[in-house]
Amino acid sequence: MDAIKISAPTDRATMKKLRAGDRVLLSGVIYTGRDAAHRRMVAALDAGEPLPVELENQIIYFVGPCPAPPGRPVGSAGPTTSYRMDSYSPRLLRDAGLLGMIGKGDRSDQVIAAMQEVDAVYFAATGGAGALIAERIKKCDTIAYSDLGPEAIFRMEVEDFPLVVAIDADGNDLYRR
């Protein structure tokens, strides 16, 4: 099965067409965020403050990369386990316009319900393949919460990042086959 090439940021129509099980190669700009960054972003929304990055139509990657060795944009950078973001993701999907998430492992019913409302997709990246994924990241800059170290929000430019559609916008879930 050939992989479908898509670019980020994206749009609802593109996300709506993807089916659970599709292989995808993603290129473009994505933003990272994991536990601590999600906590801060949701706190900002609660306080009525702007997010440090505009998430409308964006794809967020759950990752805390290794430091960049000399001559490379980033160190090893595979996905972290997604369920820890389950309590925050519905808020970012409904109130910030987020359209895609990249991580590993299954998601809660609440996340899947929110995804269906906004036509968002959850992609699985290959856990434990951080070096392989780092080769597909062409640029990486810290853009917010730099005090969090590896948990900061990074802006990444990726080329042919290999993904699998794990949960599609209609709620079809490859983890619950």
Partner: peptide, 19 residues
């Protein structure tokens, strides 16, 4: 991908996993 990852990690001295 795991095998390819191990090869890239060894060639470039990159961690196998970011964690």
């Amino acid at each position: 991908q795991y095998l390819e990852n191990a090869e890239i990690a060894a060639t470039h001295n990159l961690p196998l996993c970011q964690d």
